[in-house]
Nucleic acid binder design. Sequence first.
DNA 1: CAAGAGATCATCT
DNA 2: GATGATCTCTTGA
Length: 195
Amino acid sequence: MLNQTFYNQNTLLIAKKLLGNLLVYNSPQGLISGKIIETEAYVGPKDKASHASKGKTPRTELMFGPAGYWYIYLIYGMYNCLNIVTDKNHYPAAVLIRAVEPIDGIKIMEKNRKTTKLTNLCSGPGKLCQAYGIDKKLNQSKAFSKTKLYIKQSKKTIKPSQIIKAKRVGVDYAQNYKDKLWRFYIKDSQFISQK
DNA sequence: CAAGAGATCATCT
DNA sequence: GATGATCTCTTGA
């Protein structure tokens, strides 16, 4: 499993390095896992797309803290988004996990998502939380010790040439930060989010 | 296939 | 009282 030292690095580096690793959840419904296909980085107090740009609030306080904790929040009243806090303590940053390729627990995902189309199970931040059954109960939990939800290092690493950089999704309001190429995904994967 | 609307609520002003 | 780090469904060409 990836340890806290890993999460303490530069956020953009982590967003890229997470690709290809396994998101594992020992859920009440059974073991679920998937390969990370797509991530986005939210970096520092000035990133207008980041919740942290509005300063420390009860919700975003976690992003200012030490790395390696899950930051989960409800968006648009109905979907959860899964992030991992990164970078040094007091520097607000996180990586949003946007898509995974289902591996274990596909039956559970199908039930939670009410669809059997493999490429539609976890191809978006809201979708993968729904498929995994992740909600705010896991907010603030640790990703770096033996917990229910963690990231396991894959033997295969993704080559830099296989990583596509793109603009982040849904952040048109982020002024001078909206065009940053801080979204990363694995080239030619069937499992990336749309748009 | 693209565009638009609706669902639905924690969080912040 | 407004607003999303989204998704699904419907409409129409």
